[in-house]
Write a protein that binds this DNA or RNA. Structure first.
Lengths: 113, 113
DNA sequence: ATAACATATTAAAATATATTTATATGTTTT
DNA sequence: AAAACATATAAATATATTTTAATATGTTAT
């Protein structure tokens, strides 16, 4: 998963409405009208939020008659969980000295040369 | 953690530059100049990205002389990891019938009454 | 076929976010 | 105390996102 795709997932989840849609989809598959009756928002607004989630790969949809059902894609959450482990699995924090890091603090570096 | 705070975390992580800043901070504490030399971006732009991360609770900072060091706050990632488990721990997906859900598909519901 | 339904798409307006330029703040060195 | 350094803040502009209103698409019922 590229950082671009991962950022897209985070951006999609960075909205309270979409976060609640995700919660509503935990273990459940729902049609669009379920969200329409939950949020005080126009139908195109809901449709747009679902599009953002879909294009980020967070939800998948399938039509059944006139309804379109949405469900979560666990792969997207697995990718996010992986990034979360990055900071959680680091036991101790090492302070990087600005003066010794390559390219860091350019003005200082030039003077110390 | 409120959904509002969680959405703020996701929104903050939903940007490629900030995502890379987070990766650079895995197990490390770095001063702002480290990011200045990494990204081709003005100093205030970096400073703004750090502010977004700070206000979301993703990073913490402390001044040491003229430098300000940034490090990750594991609590924020723990909160995100918790939400990730929501879909990952659901074994099977149940389809919710639009007709039987309370308030769902209003027009249909009125007719079926 | 026509009408009604469920949802998506488009275009426009409203709102939020990011970037830049200029300036301010706090710290260290001289 | 003055100059230089590292970073933050403010104001202005540029860009992206969200919302709404109008319309289109695909499906089912009549």
């Amino acid at each position: 998963m590229t950082d671009k795709a991962l950022a897209k997932i985070f951006k999609a989840l960075g909205d309270e409405t979409r976060l609640e849609i995700v919660r509503m989809l935990a273990g459940k598959e729902r049609c669009v009208c379920a969200f329409l009756s939950t949020f005080s928002m126009t139908q195109p607004a809901i449709s747009n939020h679902l599009r953002v989630l879909r294009e980020a790969g967070i939800v998948q949809d399938s039509r059944d008659g006139r309804w379109i059902f949405y469900r979560l894609n666990p792969d997207a959450f697995a990718a996010v969980a992986t990034l979360c482990q990055l900071p959680l699995s680091q036991p101790k924090i090492e302070r990087i000295d600005p003066l010794t890091e390559p390219g860091a603090c350019p003005k200082q570096k030039e003077e110390s040369a």
